[in-house]
Design a binder for these strands. Structure first.
Length: 905
RNA sequence: GGUCGCAUAGCUCAGCUGGUUAGAGCGCACGGUUCACAUCCGUGAGGUCGUAGGUUCGAGUCCUACUGCGACCACCA
């Protein structure tokens, strides 16, 4: 016999060692060759790359556990499974960390210079980066670490360059001066997706703009006699940049103004009045100030009407020199206060009202984004979106839960061009060079760094200083990690991948763009399934986050309860596309399910190993003739569980798969089967019976451990390795590469018998508990009218009834007399416990009365259904037959319960 | 403003094509010193399935409206 196991499962002792063993044996390493030879199908998940500087949190815990469950399950099914790990350089996030370090030294990035700064970021990344990959090991993720990638490493940078050049050559990348989202704190452009709208309580200022020249009759007038119109704005400081005013062409009120001029207060600039359908006459006064440099709509309108733009702000959102003296250099909000105060002093403010509207904030630092006229690089998205949209509609790419398809479609249909340049230093430098030679103006995007202009040959060229949006490398991730743009074996074997598991927050940022890149650069979708997880929240429903301090550290959980407990708990909490709630203040309660289940598995395994001892174990086939009801039952249940777990995993129903496996292991195998075979493990049991029980036990435990292995790899492997091989036949060397079981046949007779027996045992226990019959006291039971299944079960497993319900003697059909407790079983059998002296007649009468009431209620419902003509006419025959049988059985039960009542006197 | 989702036990959620008595885990109550496990075993209490209509022989499940919560999208200054 193997070394004795401790009675408590101690994960710390086994996990790290097992992981090392698995990794060393190369189980996680996927081979391209067998796939290319057509010997096996690949199953590939490319990890959503965490930020290189990230530390593992529960969101990763959830995500990566799901991925690993899928990978391990498919690997057991014999697929060449690749779980490809890696990290993302996360431009702003990482740059900010290093900038903060510099700030602590009293320096800024411009103090150290670009080259030194980038070097410093690399240092930081090399030192602290990839911690998260180590942490993924701790939760058991079976990644192929030989293929770890980083978005900024040379190969991937080459992919970024290639993608840029191709799009540039096709004219899908262009540079232009447009209104973009600008973060005045990060000092960079942001994409539309990075500017997050937040409802904000603001104000709507109604400002009087005097009319130059002839005013419409009846126009209101200022104290100085000038006529005016009212213009509404939420951002008065931007009026300093107004270059026009617009009204709706059909607006009678202002028709005479069109073509005329207004005077911009505070600046005294003349503003042309134009007519444009963009203006909503219903909103505000129906007159809109046009500030082309600080509002995207105004910018478009200005283009249509050939109106100039005037940028009145500096990059850090202070007023520029293009505004009147008093406002120069003021912060934008300070400027707003000054402008309003000055207007009020001039009696030019009609009124100020509260106004709730959504204001864009920087996704990284939450600063209010400033729409800013600026020259940036863009990707033309419409042509890229078309195949990606078609792929989702045709089902080439499936979303789970499928409601995300609509969200995706909506975004794709209304897609806007992507701002890809960022005014940062950390990231992929934009591979564009400008020729500075007089009159040349050449703009080049070559595959290798140029030394001279490709047009005029001048050596006076200069690279664009900006870097690319992080997502410009991320969207290539499934391609670049497999070797693209080279035609590598990995690319040919593993692209397209199968499943992407990620959070819905990055559906647009990442998922949609990967699909576009997949089609654009490889002509196929990057994955077949997108599984979108929920969010991990605390008990108050708040998203777990570092800043709120309501996070759970997965590593602490691993340390306390083990990776398996963490994984099981996470998997069993993840409803179909629902959020996951966990209590950071009560880890014990939160992870009790996983911890307790681990312990249960451990002890069931311990029980089996202790009882099997060193004896050789027969194969199931060898003991087929000696199998007893309980054996056939548990084998049948294993078949059922196997079919269920497989089906649920196929449908991404993790919660239910975990629950099925749990219920089988605990509720059937441990609670019933192990108890049932205890007597057969004793020396006095017959050798054949013992042999059959052990063979069944080993077989069933083997199957159960396989079903649980994807979710709980450590404990299952650790026990499985100790299980003897039936018949001495060689097995797989590890569950990691073990075979996923096929469901065997069901044994309906055995299941029916055990169901009846379990119900009987339950009924006896209930009565015992109800009447407080001491555990030491063995009682007699009398059974009348047991059905065939129950009779059969009793013949086979009477000792189980005695043991598990603490029953002395069992009398069938007869001898039931005197005072006692009654119950009617579903099978129609009648249970009687003679409990003279124990029983309380009143209590028994009440109990029977309650039961009678329940049966009466059911009977009434059933009978009324049966008496309905439509039911007989329209319901399927089997349903009608079932109802008939039910009514008959209920009538029978009612009659017998009535007799019992009368018997009580 | 638009789109989508959710509402089932004290809590977190299942309930997959409408069809036996609506389930699980945690929590709660009662009982348990049986040689795998007290991180355990047994028993129990607790639900008008958000509200109101409708379709159907039959609705937690399908439809409509309403209420409440949430997510995403959106240029009404």
């Amino acid at each position: 016999m193997a070394e004795p196991l401790s009675s408590q499962y101690d994960p710390a002792q086994i996990e790290a060692a097992l992981y090392r063993e698995w990794e060393e044996r190369g189980y996680f390493h996927a081979r391209a060759e067998p796939v290319l030879r057509g010997e096996t199908d690949p199953y590939v998940i490319v990890i959503p790359p965490p930020n290189v500087t990230a530390v593992l949190h529960m969101g990763h815990g959830l995500n990566n556990t799901i991925q690993d469950v899928l990978i391990r399950w498919r690997r057991m099914q014999g697929r060449e499974s690749l779980y490809l790990p890696g990290t993302d350089h996360a431009r702003i996030a990482t740059q900010n960390v290093v900038e903060r370090q510099l700030a602590a030294e009293g320096k800024t990035r411009s103090d150290v210079g670009r080259e030194a700064f980038v070097e410093r970021v690399w240092e930081f990344v090399d030192r602290t980066g990839s911690t998260i990959l180590e942490q993924l090991r701790a939760i058991g993720c079976s990644c192929d670490w030989t293929r770890t990638r980083f978005t900024l490493e040379p190969d991937l940078s080459r992919a970024v360059r290639e993608a840029f050049v191709r799009l540039f050559d096709k004219g899908l990348i262009y540079r232009g001066k447009y209104i973009i989202n600008w973060c005045p704190r990060c000092l960079t452009a942001l994409s539309d997706e990075e500017a997050e709208a937040a409802e904000t309580q603001g104000r709507l200022y109604h400002i009087r703009y005097p009319i130059a020249g002839d005013a419409p009759t009846g126009a209101p007038r200022l104290a100085d006699g000038r006529a005016y119109v009212v213009v509404a704005t939420t951002r008065p400081e931007t009026m300093l940049g107004d270059t026009a005013v617009a009204v709706h062409p059909d607006d009678e009120r202002y028709r005479s103004l069109v073509g005329g001029r207004l005077i911009l207060p505070l600046v005294d600039r003349e503003l042309p009045v134009v007519a444009d359908t963009y203006v909503d006459p219903e909103f505000g006064s129906g007159v809109v100030k046009i500030t082309p440099a600080h509002d995207p709509n105004d910018f478009e309108l200005a283009q249509r009407h050939d109106i100039a733009a005037l940028d009145v702000m500096t990059p850090d959102a202070h007023m520029s020199d293009d505004v009147p003296g008093p406002y120069r250099g003021l912060d934008r909000f300070e400027a707003r206060r000054r402008v309003v105060a000055d207007l009020e002093a001039l009696d030019l403010v009609e009124r100020i009202e509260d106004h709730t509207h959504s204001v864009p904030h920087c996704y990284r630092c939450d600063t209010i984004v400033e729409p800013r006229l600026s020259e940036q690089w863009f990707v033309r998205m419409k042509p890229l979106a078309e195949p990606a949209l078609a792929a989702a509609r045709s089902g080439r790419v499936r979303f789970t839960p499928d409601r995300w398809l609509k969200v995706y479609e909506h975004w794709m249909e209304n897609i806007r061009d992507w701002t890809i340049s960022r005014q940062l230093w950390w990231g992929h430098r934009i591979p564009v060079w400008y020729c500075r030679a007089d009159g040349c103006g050449n703009v080049m995007a070559p595959r290798t760094d140029p030394t001279e202009c490709t047009k005029c040959g001048s050596g006076d060229i200069e690279q664009d200083p900006d870097v690319l949006d992080t997502w410009f490398s991320s969207w290539l991730w499934p391609l670049s990690t497999l070797g693209w743009p080279d035609e590598t074996d990995d690319l040919r074997a593993f692209y397209p991948t199968q499943t992407l598991v990620t959070a819905p927050e990055i559906l647009f940022f990442w998922v949609a763009r990967m699909i576009m890149a997949g089609y654009e650069f490889r002509g196929d979708a990057p994955f077949a399934d997108v599984y979108l997880t929920g969010t991990v929240r605390d008990t108050q429903g708040r998203k777990m986050s570092k800043s709120l301090g309501n996070g759970i550290d997965p590593l602490e959980v691993v340390q306390l309860y083990g990776a398996d407990a963490l994984r099981y708990t996470v998997i069993s909490s993840v409803g179909f596309g629902t959020d996951v709630y966990m209590d950071p203040d009560n880890l014990d309660a939160t992870f009790s399910a996983g911890r307790n289940f681990s312990n249960k598995i451990w002890n069931a395994g311990r029980f089996a190993l202790m009882n099997i001892g060193d004896d050789p174990v027969a194969t199931l086939d060898d003991v087929r003739a000696d199998l007893e009801t309980a054996d056939r039952w548990i084998l049948s249940r294993l078949s059922a569980a196997t079919a269920e777990v497989t089906r649920q995993l196929e449908a991404f129903r993790f919660h239910e798969a975990a629950e099925s496996a749990y219920h089988f292991f605990w509720g059937e195998l441990a609670d019933w089967y192990l108890e049932l075979i205890k007597p057969r493990m004793q020396p006095e049991a017959s050798a054949g019976s013992r042999r059959a029980a052990k063979a069944t036990l080993v077989h069933v435990l083997d199957g159960a451990l396989r079903l649980l292995h994807p979710v709980m790899p450590y404990i299952t492997e650790s026990l499985w390795l100790r299980l003897p091989a039936p018949g001495g036949v060689a097995r797989e060397e590890s569950l990691v590469v073990g075979r996923w079981p096929d469901p065997g046949p069901r044994d309906e007779a055995a299941e029916a018998q055990m169901d009846a027996l379990m119900e009987l045992i339950g009924a006896v226990r209930t009565l015992r508990s109800e009447y407080n019959v001491p555990a030491q006291l063995h009682i007699h039971v009398h059974l009348t009218n047991p059905g065939p299944s129950l009779q059969e079960a009793l013949r086979a497993e009477e000792r189980a009834l005695r043991r598990m319900a603490r029953v002395g003697e069992v009398t069938v059909n007869g001898g039931a007399e005197g005072m006692g407790a009654h119950a009617v079983l579903r099978s129609g059998a009648d249970l009687f416990l003679p409990l003279a002296g124990v029983i309380d007649v009143e209590q028994e009468r009440k109990r029977l009365g309650k039961e009678l009431e329940r049966i009466d209620g059911q009977l009434r419902a059933t009978e009324s259904r049966l008496s309905s003509e439509q039911f007989a006419a329209r319901a399927p025959a089997e349903i009608v037959a079932r109802e008939r049988e039910k009514a008959e059985s209920l009538r029978d039960q009612r009659e017998r319960l009535g007799a019992k009542m009368r018997g009580l006197g």
